[in-house]
Design a binder for these strands. Structure first.
Length: 271
DNA sequence: ATGGTCGGCAACCGA
């Protein structure tokens, strides 16, 4: 069977619900993972998603800030939320799909929203950067993020780091900019390797091809300047690595009216 | 080298 899984930092799901609906009708993902929903669970537009075919939802939202959700056409077996850095700031949710979804072998999906880290890349003077470093270290050390080699698992989301040279428009000019400093790139890559995860976007499109999923709101002519970053990622466990038939970065959604600054990334799996 | 823009929610914080 074919399974489409999308990750998208939507930057307010209520403001952009019509844009999400448009994307759903065009791409028809089976599982839609959103970040920065900025929506408490009791205010989440569940009815709208039900009408769009997503009867199943795992919510981890809060008022005004952060928030992650998994919406699915297929029922899941269970979901859980992990807290990082001793905070309850809604940056992770996990769903496990199995027999109810018609899967013989279970499939675990971790949806993450890693802290952005503020402007100054120095943990001594910027507590937001210190939080980001601690969060990445916890991801590295987290036992539940280390699937067995034979286990089917996906870790995706807005990881807020562009780890490779060609994940940014200018490696040299970005070296001191939060999201591409050497310590962040190293910590994200170390966390990925520690869990045995495969960077499926880069398997599909190796360097030196540029890959971006985010373009700043501060650039009025974002498309011409094209100074993007690859902040959103889809990692798979080793056994799923060669089951990714396609990766689509829907860049056109950055050009929508009232866009998110992130665009959807969709992996098509052959299970 | 600097400042540039968003969203939430009602003054700034976070990105």
């Amino acid at each position: 069977m074919q399974l489409k899984v999308t990750t998208w930092n939507i930057n307010s799901v209520r403001l952009r619900i019509d844009l999400v609906a448009k994307f759903i009708k065009a791409m028809r993902p089976d599982i839609l993972c959103l970040q920065e929903t900025k929506c408490p669970d009791d205010a989440f537009p569940l009815k709208r998603f039900k009408r769009l075919g997503y009867d199943n939802a795992a919510l981890n939202g809060q008022k005004a800030y952060h928030g992650v959700v998994v919406l699915s056409r297929l029922p899941f077996e269970r979901c859980n939320v992990q807290s990082f850095c001793g905070k309850t700031d809604c940056r992770h949710i996990c769903t496990v799909f199995g027999e109810r979804a018609g899967l013989r072998d279970p499939l675990t999906i971790h949806n993450f929203y890693v802290p952005a880290g503020g402007d100054i890349p120095d943990p001594a003077v910027n507590s937001k950067f210190a939080h980001k470093m601690a969060f990445l270290d916890e991801m590295r050390d987290c036992a539940t993020l280390r699937p067995a080699p034979s286990e089917r698992a996906i870790l995706l989301g807005d990881l807020n780091v562009a780890p490779l040279e060609h994940d940014v428009w200018s490696h040299k000019q970005m070296l001191r900019v939060v999201s591409h400093t050497p310590i962040e790139c190293e910590k994200l890559t170390t966390a990925r390797i520690a869990g045995g995860w495969v960077d499926s976007m880069r398997i599909h499109t190796p360097e030196p091809t540029k890959l971006y999923t985010w373009w700043s709101y501060r650039s009025p002519d974002w498309a011409t300047a094209d100074r993007g970053r690859r902040l959103d990622h889809i990692w798979t466990s080793p056994i799923l690595a060669d089951r990714v038939a396609d990766i689509t970065i829907a860049k056109a959604y950055r050009g929508a009216e009232q866009p998110s600054d992130h665009v959807p990334v969709t992996a098509t799996l052959e299970l």
